[in-house]
Amino acid sequence: MTYVYPALLEAILDTAVDAIIVINEGGIIQTVNPATTKLFGYSDAELLGQNVNILMPAPYHQEHDGYLKNYRETGQAKIIGIGREVIGRRKDGSTFPMHLAVSEMDIGGSKMFAGIVRDISDLKQAQQLLTDINQQLEQRVQQRTIELRNAQAELLKAEKLATLGKVSGGIAHEIRNPLNALRTSTYYLQHAHQPTPEKLQEHLERIDRQVALINSVVTALSDIARLPEPERETCRLDQLIANVMPTVTMPANVTVINQVNAETAPVVSVDPDQLAIVLRNLIRNARDAMPEGGTLTLSAERTSGQVRVVVRDTGVGIAGEELRQIVEPLYSTKARGMGLGLAISKAILDKHHGRLEFNSEIGVGTTCEVHLPAAENLP
């Protein structure tokens, strides 16, 4: 196939998305493409024959002729064949960051220079936004680090040093994944060549989500360590359960059987807000154990100075090894679980001189028992 090369070159200039400016040795503009007039706001007639420094703000405007003179005399190129970030000036006087790549040509024995200009305002804005996010992340990490150190001190005072190794491993596991996602998005934003606004927004939102996830992990750990002493009240279990149930969303394929009624419900002396956390965690776990549907049964009774609350599901069940670890901080059988719900529940019951017990069978379901001392048997 034979091309008419002048026509082809003209078509390339006319359709190029980047601004293309050709100048002679003296810096006088010889030709520009439509992208140039669109970017800088000048017409062809206003640019042709003008010194190219018309497109530069101070101090580049004054220095450009000196660069050309120095190149003619010494042959030392500061930008030719290299490309760099500079500042451009539009006709209305506004400035913007741009990437400029310059190539040298020999046309009929005369040197000419072609500059390709790309507006990088969006990229610079994204980089600044990334810098701001990194600064905020650093501040939040510093703040959470202090809180985590305080939480660790509380753990030591409470003689929980034996579990610190497991907790540390769990923290590393829970935080490493979001940190990897942060690193990936940061690398993309730093190295992407003119990314689309949609891609910029996608990665910035991902960074924000991962920061929030790290924040939630550390906050939950701090909450465990700073759990206040319970403020006990005399409460009926049927009322406590009635208050908790509306706060847990139940799918249509899960049937709830609540056998705790006003006539038979034991009375306990507990902190109602703290015990509500325990009940809510157990009910949510039972619900989540039945993704294909099933039955959740609640019951309570008083036996031998103890009050026993039972939460039973007909879900997938828990294997023996996992059953022995489910109350450890940051251990979870759920794909997206943080592994803190049962750890918090155990910490609350410890302060109430109570305990958790679990029995489970794979494919049959799990029974969780909350044991609390009767009011008159409290120390």
Rank of each mutant, 00 (worst) to 15 (best):
K157E: 00
K157Y: 06
K157A: 13
K157P: 01
K157R: 10
A158D: 14
A158C: 06
E159Q: 15
E159W: 06
E159H: 06
E159N: 09
E159L: 01
A162P: 02
A162H: 04
T163G: 06
T163W: 01
T163D: 04
T163E: 13
L164P: 01
G165C: 05
K166P: 02
K166M: 00
V167E: 04
V167I: 14
V167L: 07
V167A: 01
V167M: 07
S168N: 11
S168W: 04
S168V: 15
S168D: 06
G170A: 06
G170H: 00
A172W: 02
A172H: 05
H173E: 14
H173V: 04
E174F: 03
E174A: 11
E174W: 08
I175A: 08
I175N: 07
I175Y: 05
R176S: 13
R176L: 08
N177A: 15
N177S: 07
N177Y: 15
P178K: 00
N180G: 06
N180P: 05
A181V: 09
R183S: 13
R183H: 14
R183Y: 05
R183I: 10
R183T: 13
T184G: 09
T184F: 10
S185C: 07
S185N: 13
T186E: 11
T186D: 11
T186F: 09
Y187E: 14
Y187L: 15
Y188G: 08
Y188I: 14
Y188E: 08
Q190F: 12
Q190V: 07
H191V: 03
H191A: 10
H191W: 07
Q194Y: 12
P195T: 12
P195C: 09
T196C: 13
T196F: 07
P197L: 10
P197G: 01
P197S: 06
P197Q: 12
E198T: 14
K199M: 14
K199D: 11
K199H: 11
L200H: 06
L200K: 06
L200W: 14
L200R: 14
Q201S: 12
E202H: 14
E202R: 05
E202T: 07
H203G: 04
H203K: 15
H203Y: 11
H203A: 05
L204R: 04
L204Q: 12
R206G: 02
R206E: 10
R206V: 11
D208Y: 04
D208E: 14
R209L: 12
R209A: 13
R209N: 15
R209H: 14
Q210T: 04
Q210Y: 06
Q210H: 09
V211W: 05
V211I: 09
V211N: 03
A212M: 07
A212S: 10
L213E: 12
L213N: 11
I214G: 03
I214L: 14
I214W: 03
N215H: 10
N215S: 15
N215M: 02
S216K: 08
V217T: 11
V217Q: 05
V218P: 03
T219Q: 10
T219W: 10
T219R: 09
